[in-house]
Each structure stands twice: as structure tokens, then as C-alpha cells.
């Protein structure tokens, strides 16, 4: 590999670990990095994952980013929106999503910023977050780790539930992994606090503390594991040959 390893590639490799050991479930990566990461998980450590073509069909190989000849897709099953709900209410799914805000409880927001009745910024709406987070495991990717995304107190409109309400989820709620532009985290600190697992190259503990609106437990300050040459080959040659991933951090 002559090319240097990009931050996007580090984030993809780290994010793909979300689906490690998850078995035969539906993997949904929403957005650029999560989608490539889900594909990487399927191509490396978890070939049993089910993935869609981004629309209605389950296909045998992850759909690469960018324009492709879909006639090459090996369709193996059907996953209409209706079936997505059936699947996820049954808990057989792990999604990686990018909320606009996340708080110390792991609560997430994609609905609206500011006062609910006349929001400063209206976003998408809660979409499937309430159902996703109460029914199956999720992981989070945040490309812009700051006090605006990792907010003090609670998120403005709780769209996905948090750890303080875990009992309401019949044991299904779990945020497995949180990957950001600064490092890798989970919520397995004492009392389900956010904890740092590793820092991306060039990032300091202070960077993380300054950019997080609540306390972070520093479990480890080691540098994030770099993508292996196998992983890089999958990312660069199979999943994103056009390099669309580099747009996320302007690399």
C-alpha cells in the first residue's frame, strides 16, 4: 500500500468492528462511512450479514459506493420497507447511524434543534430512531465530534432512547460502538458512561475532553488500530473504488 491511510479509512475500519460476532442479522449502515463499514464487516469478519442494495433487495455482496451496473447484483432476497419494520421489531438487525446530537445517556436526536414548537433547525423527524434503539443494537458514527454533537444535559428532542431507560427495552437496547473523527468509544464505562477506547493518530485526550459536552471516561489512550492491508484492499478496490469516502473529511 503506497497510499497513506486516510482518516476516513481508519473510521471505516473501526466502524466495521460494530458487526463483529453479530451473526446472521441485517446490517444497515446509514450514510457514507457506516455503509462502507458494514460492507467491510461482511467482506472480512462476518460474511453471514444480510445487506440490501440500498433499496428493496437483499444482495449477496455489499453494494459498492457510486454508480454501478446493478445487473451484476446477486439478488438473494426481498427487504421492502414493510419487511424492514418486521425485521427490526423482531430485533434481528444492527444499524449504524449518525445522529445530529448525542448525550451522556446515549440518547440521540435527528428530529429538531431548539424549541420543539418552533425549532431553530427542523431536521428529518424522528424517523425510525425510537423503534431502532428500543428493538435492536445500534452503533454511532459522528464525523464532527464537538460540544454541539456530544451535548451537555439532554439532546433537544430524544429520538433514540438512552441507557437510563434500558429497562423499557426488554433487554434489547445497546449502543455497541461510537466512532468519531477523534477516536473510538463505547458506553460500557461505569454506569454506562461514554468511555474512550482509542484515539485516532494525532488526537490528544484533551481534544476529546474539550469537544465533548459531558464527562468521558478514559479507559485507554492508545492509538486506534490501523486498517490491515486486507481491509484497505477491500475499501479501495471493492467497496469504494471511486474514493467517495474521502469527501467526508475533505481528504
Amino acid at each position: 500500500m503506497s497510499e497513506s491511510i486516510s482518516l476516513a479509512e481508519i473510521c471505516i475500519s473501526s466502524s466495521s468492528k460494530a458487526w463483529k460476532g453479530e451473526g446472521e442479522i441485517l446490517a444497515t449502515g446509514i450514510g457514507l462511512i457506516p455503509r462502507i463499514a458494514a460492507g467491510l464487516a461482511k467482506l472480512t469478519h462476518n460474511p453471514d450479514l444480510m445487506m440490501t442494495d440500498g433499496e428493496t433487495y437483499l444482495i449477496s455482496q455489499p453494494a459498492p459506493m457510486g454508480k454501478r451496473d446493478t445487473s451484476n447484483d446477486q439478488v438473494e432476497g426481498y427487504m421492502s420497507y414493510s419487511r424492514v419494520f418486521e425485521n427490526l421489531w423482531g430485533g434481528k438487525r444492527h444499524a449504524m447511524v449518525t445522529p445530529t446530537q448525542i448525550d451522556s445517556f446515549g440518547q440521540t436526536n435527528i428530529s429538531a434543534i431548539g424549541d420543539y414548537d418552533s425549532p431553530k433547525v427542523q431536521l428529518l423527524g424522528v424517523r425510525g430512531f425510537p423503534g431502532n434503539f428500543i428493538n435492536h443494537k445500534n452503533s454511532i458514527f459522528i464525523p464532527n465530534h464537538s460540544v454541539k454533537t456530544f451535548v451537555k444535559g439532554e439532546v433537544d428532542m430524544v429520538s433514540g432512547m438512552g441507557y437510563q431507560n434500558k429497562d423499557l427495552s426488554n433487554g434489547k437496547f445497546e449502543i455497541k460502538l461510537v466512532v468519531t473523527n477523534l477516536g473510538v468509544f463505547d458506553f460500557n464505562g461505569e454506569n454506562n458512561n461514554l468511555q474512550l477506547l482509542s484515539l485516532h493518530p494525532g488526537v490528544s485526550i484533551d481534544n476529546v475532553i474539550e469537544n465533548t459536552g459531558f464527562d468521558v471516561i478514559i479507559k485507554s489512550d492508545e492509538v486506534t488500530q490501523m486498517p490491515t492491508s486486507d481491509e484497505l484492499a477491500c475499501i479501495r478496490e471493492v467497496l469504494d473504488p471511486q474514493g467517495i469516502r474521502n469527501s467526508i473529511f475533505g481528504e
Partner: peptide, 13 residues
């Protein structure tokens, strides 16, 4: 009946 909505502001609002 459903669990969906529990623990979120869907119920608050």
C-alpha cells in the same frame, strides 16, 4: 400495543 416510543420525546410531545 408497542414498545416503540418509550424512553423518547415522542411521548413527551
Amino acid at each position: 400495543p408497542t414498545r416503540v416510543g418509550l424512553g423518547t420525546d415522542v411521548l413527551t410531545h
